[in-house]
Design a protein around this nucleic acid. Structure first.
Length: 120
DNA sequence: TGCGTGACGTGAA
DNA sequence: TTTCACGCCACGC
């Protein structure tokens, strides 16, 4: 079957899973694409995590995903360009107490929230 | 139907 | 040491 639309019940929607993990990120904390990807088992799936964010962009309300808390491994707000405004991501982080300077999260390593470690 | 793209990360040269 | 290239999965065209 070349079109395994449902290979098994374990058909874990990567997007759905990513959204769920990001939603668990507490305010004032930040995580990375790689951390989420690794938590999902996809060590190289960091790219797709970004896709999930973009797909979750239009989501609002209970399904809203704090994409502004998800940044790259370097602590840079790489996805800010996809937000409503170039500063929306930074504004949201600062509103939670996260200091952002030059599109880079200060004390990123300290505010880093690892799902596989916190949720473990 | 099939190919390329895409908010990244890691490994190797 | 820094830089280049590759790899992953899913979605869009």
């Amino acid at each position: 079957m070349k079109t395994p639309k449902e290979p098994t019940e374990a058909h874990r929607n990567f997007f759905k899973d990513v959204h769920d993990v990001v939603r668990l990120v507490p305010a004032g904390r930040v995580t990375t694409y790689g951390a989420i990807a690794h938590y999902l088992g996809a060590r190289n799936g960091a790219r797709m995590v970004g896709w999930a964010m973009m797909a979750a962009h239009p989501l609002v309300g209970p399904t809203a995903v704090p994409a502004h808390r998800v940044i790259n491994r370097l602590g840079l707000l790489t996805g800010r360009q996809h937000f409503a405004t170039s500063t929306a991501m930074q504004e949201a982080l600062e509103a939670e107490g996260v200091h952002v300077e030059d599109d880079q999260v200060q004390d990123f390593q300290r505010l880093f929230w690892d799902p596989s470690k916190e949720l473990a």
